[in-house]
C-alpha cells in the first residue's frame, strides 16, 4: 500500500512546457482519474512519474519518500496504451512477465509467472507463446501482469483501453478494478473517456494545456464541474441514446 504525491511537477522540452507545476495526491488504495484532451499533458505527467519524461522541476513522492533518480525496479509501474507496441515481439509472454520478477530460482520464477498470468486471466500454458499469437485484449492483460509482477505500490494506466475493442475494454476494466480492490495499489488512471474514468475513479483530476485545472471527488467534479475545460469534456461525451443525454 502506497500513496503517490506529485509536488510542483514541471516537464519542459526545450522551450515547450508540456506539464506545468502540477500538484496531485493519489491517496493509498484509491484510484485517481486523470482526464484532458490530447496535448493537455496528461500522458506526459504519467511518463514523468516513472522517469520516461525529464522532470525539470518538482518532486515525486511515494509514501512520502522522494523517488529521485533511483535505479532498479521502481515502486511505480506503468501500463502503456498500445498493447501491440508494449510487448517485445521476440520475447515469450512468460519471459516478459519474468523480467519484472525479482531474481530467484528458475522453478520459483515459473510458478510466479504462472500465478501472475492466472491473476489476469491468461492460461499459464500460454506463457511459451510470443505476443503475436495473442489478441489485443490478451496482450493488454499480459502487460498488466508484467506491471503487477513488479509489485508496484502505485500503478499508472495510460489510456490502456483506447486501442481495444469495446467488448474487450469491458473485460480489461473489470479486471483492473477487481485487481485494484484486491491488491490495494494506488492508481493513476489516465484516459480521455470520462465514462470510463467515472466508472473506475474515486477522484478525478482534469488537465488542460499542461496545468491541473480541477481536482476533486468523482461525483462532485462530474456533477458540478467548476472549470470550463471539465464542462467541455463533459459535453463531448458521446452517448448512444438521446434519453441519456438529458440525465
Amino acid at each position: 500500500m502506497s500513496s503517490l504525491e506529485l509536488r510542483g511537477i514541471t516537464v519542459r522540452y526545450g522551450r515547450f512546457t508540456a506539464v506545468e507545476n502540477v500538484d496531485l495526491l493519489v491517496p493509498e488504495g484509491t484510484v485517481t482519474g486523470l482526464v484532458g484532451g490530447s496535448g493537455s499533458g496528461k500522458s506526459t505527467l504519467g511518463k514523468a512519474v516513472v522517469g520516461l519524461a525529464p522532470i525539470t522541476a518538482g518532486q515525486v513522492l511515494v509514501d512520502g519518500g522522494d523517488l529521485g533518480r533511483r535505479r532498479g525496479r521502481g515502486p511505480v509501474q506503468l501500463v502503456f496504451q498500445n498493447p501491440y507496441a508494449s510487448l517485445d515481439p521476440r520475447m515469450t509472454v512468460g519471459a516478459a512477465v519474468a523480467e519484472a520478477l525479482p531474481r530467484t530460482g528458475r522453478a520459483a520464477r515459473s510458478t510466479e509467472v504462472a500465478r501472475y498470468l492466472e491473476l489476469v486471466g491468461i492460461d499459464p500454458s500460454r506463457a511459451v507463446l510470443t505476443p503475436d499469437a495473442l489478441s489485443g485484449g490478451q496482450r493488454q492483460r499480459v502487460a498488466l501482469a508484467r506491471a503487477l509482477a513488479a509489485r508496484p505500490g502505485v500503478l499508472i494506466a495510460d489510456e490502456i483501453t483506447s486501442a481495444l475493442d469495446v467488448s474487450v475494454q469491458g473485460a480489461v476494466l473489470n479486471l483492473l478494478r477487481e485487481l485494484q480492490r484486491e491488491l490495494g495499489f494506488a492508481m493513476l488512471f489516465i484516459s480521455h473517456n470520462l465514462a470510463v474514468v467515472r466508472y473506475l475513479s474515486d477522484q478525478v483530476a482534469v488537465m488542460d494545456e499542461g496545468r491541473l485545472v480541477e481536482c476533486g471527488p468523482t461525483d462532485r467534479v462530474l456533477r458540478q464541474p467548476e472549470h470550463a475545460t471539465t464542462r467541455t469534456l463533459l459535453a463531448c461525451v458521446p452517448t448512444i441514446s438521446p434519453a441519456e443525454e438529458a440525465s
Binding site: 467488448s167 469491458g170 476494466l173 473489470n174 470520462l194 465514462a195 452517448t239 448512444i240 441519456e244
Partner: peptide, 21 residues
C-alpha cells in the same frame, strides 16, 4: 445487445461489473 451493454456510460453504476462478451 452485448456490444451496447459493454460500453460504460455516464450512468453506469460503478458498483456493478461491466458486461463483457
Amino acid at each position: 445487445r452485448a456490444l451496447v451493454g459493454a460500453i460504460p456510460t455516464m450512468t453506469t453504476d460503478p458498483n456493478t461489473e461491466l458486461a463483457t462478451i
